[in-house]
Each structure stands twice: as C-alpha cells, then as structure tokens.
Design a binder for these strands. Structure first.
Length: 501
RNA sequence: GCCCCCAUCGUCUAGAGGCCCAGGACGCCACCCUUUCAAGGUGGAGAUCAGGGGUUCGAAUCCCCUUGGGGGCACCA
C-alpha cells in the first residue's frame, strides 16, 4: 500500500470545534500509524463568514493539542509548507476555474440561469406535493443559442453538474458497502455560483484530487454527500479515494453536537483548564477504542495503536464528567515544574478577575504541589482550591465560622485557645505541619473537644471555607503571622456577634 | 416527505457463533483510609445485548422485518 495522504479541511467560519478537532486527530493518528502524510487545508471560500481571527484560532488550538501537520499553512496568514500548495482555497481559485471550464467543455456541467425566485418556487411546489426537493432541470438542455441569448441579456449563469442516472456504491472503511441511487441526489447540483465563486462539493474534490488524497476520513454528516464527490472525482478523471465516515459527537439529547446545546470551542475547554493530553485522550476514545481495556493514552501511544477497524459506527454522546476525570488523571501525571508553569495563566486570570489579590511565584507554589495536584480536576480550579492563600483581606461571616455541632461560645473559646497554642508552643522559625498538629490535638484532648471539630473551626477561621487541603499544610502555606492574624479577626468577628438571649 | 446510516449498563465502550445468564471505565451508592475536601483501595447497584422472526447443535455476534434514533437532501461548509 502506498503511503496514505489524509487531510483535515476546516472552514474558518468559527473557532476550532470539538468535532473538527476530533476529525483532525483521527486523520493525524491514521497518518502517523501508517507512515502517511497529514495535510491541513483551509476552506475559506465562504468569504462572508470566514475571518482571519477564526483561522488563527483553528491553527493555534490544533498546535496546542499537539496535532501537527506535514503540509499546510503554519500560522494564520502565514506561509504554506508542502509541495501541493497553496493550502488556502481562496488562493486556488484559478484551479477551480480551470476545472470548471473543463467539465463545462465536456458538457459534464452546464450554465444555469434560474433565478433564486424560480428555484424557490420549484422547491415550494415540491414540498406541497410531498416530493423531495430536486432541481427540475430547466436549464439542462438549453442550446448554445439560448445560452448566448441569456448572456446578452446580462445574465450570469451558475454552473450545474450533470448527475448521471445510476447507482453509486463505495466501500466505506468503517461502515462497509454503501449504495445510493443518484436519483436521490436532488438533481443536477451547482458547483460554481453565478458570481464565479466555487462551492464546497466542487472545491473539496478538486483539491483532494490535486493534493492526491488517498483516504477521506470525515464526519458521518458527509456520508450522503459522498456520491456527489465520487461523481466529481470521476468527472475530473481522478482516482476515487477511500472513504471512512466517523460517528458524530452528540449533545446529551443525541443530536449532532452543537454550540447551542454544548460547549464546542476547543479554546473554551482550554480556558477552563483542560490540558491537551486529556482532551486528545478523551477525543480519541470518543468513537474509537483500542480493543483492550487501556484508556489512559498519550498522543504517541494513540498513534501507535490507531486503526479504522475499531471505529464505532453509532454516534457518541459527549460526556464532560468523563473528560474531567481524565483531565485529573493527566494533571496528576504532570511533574511539579510543569504543573507550576501551566498554572500560571490561571492564577493571573484569577487575579485579573479580582478573585485573588496576588499571583504566587513558582517558589511559593512549589511546596504546594503535593497537596494540590491530586485535588485539581482542571487547572482552572486552582483559585477555588487554594485561592484563600492569596487574598489580602479575608473576612468570614459568623454563620460559617461556627461549626455545625458547635455554638458561638465554644467556637470562640476554641479559637482563642488555638491561637494561644500556636503562639506559645510553636516557634516562628520552624512553622511546620509536624509541629502544629501535636499541640492542637493535645488541646482538643484537654478540653474534651473532638479534634475534627477544633480543626474545622480553625480551618474556617483561616481559609473561609469548609473544604480545603489538609489543615496544617494550609496553615504552613499561609505562614505564622497570617494564621494568627486571621484567627484574631475571626475571634473579633465572633465577639461582635449578636447573641440571642 | 425522500435517501442514507446507526442500535450492548444513564454515558463512553469490550465483544468479530460456543470462553458472555455479557467484561472495563466514567458517574452513582456503600465501606476502608481520614482533621474537611480530594486522591487511592475494596465492594455494590446498573444491560431480558431495542423488539420480533429466522439460520445454526449453539447468536450480543449472521439474515430479514418492525420500532427507535441520527444524518443528509442549498448559488453553506
């Protein structure tokens, strides 16, 4: 088998979509596994909706995921790389024009002068008659003279491809044999607009042919379009590539995943602190499996195992909980320095949003790694977890200050005693977790309090929260002075509390 | 409406005629660990393999029908 050539052909009409990312991933994995070439081509012929910003997002997020391509544009607006360029469709217009001229000359396509109003009327009539929409062929048999007459009237024709009668069958690599009667294709279809710009079905095929693609791996939503593409490949005199249609990624209601019902932009997952290792791992397992029970797999490991045989046929519901679990798995596998570095942007975002007052340095973060690493489902959860460490002015209300089974007076007594214990028995120089625990446990014992209750009172007084990393580690991270200051403040708050008579 | 595709626990899936009165993972529930929260460990609930017919000594696995779901039918991509 010659080395496969596969591609991803995103349209820069929106930010990188999770479905596009997965299709890109599957193509990438297929190329890597089989010693093939992975091409990126930008389908930007929808000038009205395409933007450079979306183009930039698509390239950047793919890079971020680690999905690299062998041919294609490197950066938004940047240079192309590879022998089949350009890789932006708007720079390939002459090629479509040339191909269009050829099919026109061979009468495999013809100019159509129908107005949008006429086409609309046709469609409505068909609908009323409960018939499938289909081009009626009004312009299919115009003579050269008739065409010339329209042109003289100043009419510009769209180019319609003649759909021959017959059945198209192809062997889909994931679905097996598929057969579709061309009678169900909706009649002759437009390949070039009346303004001269080419349409999707035409450009994909012209480019896939020119770029010598051997396998077209794409979403199932293209399955019904495949006969049109096959017809076009044949009309252009090109070998028909192999097709593999992937199951769709679904919303929880099992409809095709959409922005409206799900979070679809890769950039949004990234902004929430999902890491590429997890996203790639999760996406690969959406619709594909190793056939074994392995499931934590890196991009390279995936590339070593990928095959089309294990691609699922039915659609797969996107399960965010499972993604979060995987993300946690991958976060726990990060080494300390890497985690610290990756946390930085999230801390800055928290500071910019006013959730914390200052961003800790890597040095401050380093000792925290053991207690936070296993508690982070996402990088974005950092502020929620230990943000109390970087808040200047922590105030806690009396309601949360008093533990569930305690009253104000007990809490007050406990905090005062705890403050004393910390002040007296623990030196300012070596303020460590091992040192803090014994005296406080002894205190609880002496007063007949449950250690857990005492610890909870201190925890809330000092962090403002009932769920935190281990208490003594938290106190150490906070430091002796701030620990005492926060205890003082909590005590003062409780002293000022209205006590019902 | 027409065409095409699909159908195993709530979800992602293993399973390619006997190893399956169906295995794993997420989630859920217990318990253990434990100062809270996590993480981790152990155990549990959860699928008459959509339903019905065949084929076969034997079917989740093959065939047919039904039902259900999805996708596609543009001068969008």
């Amino acid at each position: 088998m010659p080395a496969p050539r596969v591609r991803i052909a995103p349209s820069p009409t929106g930010p990188l979509h999770i479905g596009t990312a997965r299709t890109a991933l599957f193509n990438y994995l297929y190329a890597r596994r089989n010693g093939g070439t992975f091409v990126l081509r930008l389908e930007d012929t929808d000038v009205a909706r395409s933007t450079l910003a979306f183009e930039a997002d698509i390239l950047e997020q793919l890079h971020w995921l680690g999905i690299t391509w062998d041919e294609g544009p490197d950066a938004a607006g940047g240079e192309d790389r590879g022998p089949f360029g350009p890789y932006r469709q708007m720079q390939r217009l002459e090629r479509y024009a040339e191909a269009a001229a050829r099919v026109l000359a061979e009468d495999k396509a013809y100019p159509c002068y129908c107005t949008p109003e006429e086409l609309d009327a046709d469609r409505k009539a068909q609908e009323a008659a409960h018939k499938p929409p289909r081009y009626v062929g009004r312009c299919a048999n115009l003579t050269l003279e008739e065409r010339a007459a329209r042109e003289t009237e100043g009419k510009r024709g769209a180019l319609r491809f003649r759909v021959p009668a017959g059945k198209i069958r192809f062997d889909d690599l994931v679905r097996g044999e598929v057969e579709i009667d061309t009678a169900n294709l909706g009649g002759d279809f437009v390949i070039v607009r009346s303004d001269g710009t080419p349409l999707y079905h035409f450009t994909v095929v012209v480019d896939d042919a020119a770029m010598e693609m051997t396998h077209i791996i794409r979403g199932e939503d293209h399955l019904s379009n495949t006969p049109k593409h096959i017809l076009l490949f044949q009309a252009l005199g090109h070998t028909v590539p192999a097709f593999a249609h992937l199951p769709l990624i679904l919303n929880p209601d099992r409809t095709k995943m959409s922005k409206r019902k799900s979070q679809t932009a890769i950039a949004d997952y990234r902004a929430q602190g999902f890491i590429p290792e997890a996203l790639v791992n999760y996406l690969a397992l959406l619709g594909w499996s190793t056939g074994t029970e392995e499931e934590i797999l890196s991009l390279d490991e995936l590339a070593g195992r990928f095959d089309l045989e294990h691609v699922q046929k039915g659609g797969a519901v996107f399960d965010r909980e499972r993604l979060e679990w995987l993300n946690g798995q991958w976060i726990r596998r990060l080494d300390a320095e890497d985690l610290i570095e990756r946390l930085q942007p999230f801390l800055e975002a928290d500071r910019d949003a006013g959730r914390i007052d200052l961003v800790p340095s890597p040095e401050e973060l380093r000792p925290l790694v053991p207690i936070i690493q296993e508690r982070l489902p996402t990088l974005g959860a950092i502020g929620d977890l230990v943000g109390f460490l970087w808040i200047e002015d922590l105030s806690v209300d009396t309601v949360t200050l008093v533990p569930k089974r305690w009253d104000r007076d007990t809490t007050l007594a406990a905090l005062r005693a705890a403050r004393e214990a910390i002040l007296e028995s623990i030196g300012p120089v070596t303020f460590e977790a091992d040192e803090l625990e014994p005296p406080l446990r002894a205190l609880a014992e002496a007063r007949g309090w449950k250690a857990g209750d005492l610890f909870m009172a201190i925890r809330v007084a000092v962090t403002g929260r009932t769920a935190t990393p281990p208490l003594f580690d938290s106190l150490v991270a906070l430091g002796r002075e701030r620990t005492l200051a926060r205890l003082d403040r909590a005590i003062a708050t409780l002293e000022g509390m209205e006590v019902p008579a």
